[in-house]
Amino acid sequence: MMSFKETLGQLNVRAYCKKYGLGMWRCPQFLFLLMGLVIIATALITYVIGTRYVADPGIVSLIVLVITIILFVLTFSFTRSLEGLAEANRLKSEFVSIVSHQLRAPLSNLKWALEILISGRFGRVEGKPADYLQILTDNTKRMGELVSSLLIVSRIEQGRLPMHKAEFSLVDLAKEAITEFKPIASASNVDIVLEIPKSDLPFAFGDSSQLKIVAENFIDNAVRYTQGAGKVVVTVSPKNGTLLFSVKDGGVGIPKEDQKHIFQKFFRSGNVLKYQTQGSGLGLYIAKSIVEKSGGKIGFKSEQDKGSTFWFTIPTKK
């Protein structure tokens, strides 16, 4: 619920519109306030005319009709100016999309050139220069991941996230994702284990490459936010006719006050910023969009300093 102070703050229309960089005539808050005032004023005028000057109900009805038409025209022109906002939002998504596409080409050039240098195909690089090469490689990879995340976000916002649904094994997907993070995890003494039931599980139905992004995000977070040595448990199990994928860690956890924001775009919890400044705050936003578009549910349980469990469900083939 909005607090009293927040509600009062919204009445300061000028500050509100300024915050979003909108001119008064394009600012919804101002337009609705104006609209309200116009409606109240016309109702008053109608009342005064009807009771004091004109006794004929026919003429009063006519006046009401004329005023309604004027109000209709006004409302229409107001909504037209709101269209500008929708257009601005579309342009923003398009901008992100174009920029990320354009960034991909130079990034893949960088990636391949670095790969050649590190492979030693044309001569070994050793000692300090090799360390610098590794820094370049790591940061190119980071940039690449960020650009990919931005591309996914822009697709989500334009409603163009591709979903190629098919049957797949969620256990295989979990194994692949774990294999990818094993090296990073063992470097920081974190053990990733997979727990699956003994009986065979049904196939999941969804876009496996998209859901792999979600699984990797969960495991990445679990490893990243585990302090010192620890264990990350990945589970795949049946749940009410769907399949449940969950990742449990004993890491830093999420403070209670931050929990409601955790799936918001660009949100990063205050406590993790102390341990880990890297991260875009896009991962869980993307995860939520993908899971929901797949017809599943997503959620988590977390306690600060005790750890978190993130899970999603995915439909099985009917």
Partner: peptide, 15 residues
């Protein structure tokens, strides 16, 4: 058309 790619992939293929 991209010179960087002609260089990287092209050189490796020649090698």
């Amino acid at each position: 058309d991209e010179a960087a790619l002609q260089k990287t992939l092209g050189d490796v293929l020649e090698q």
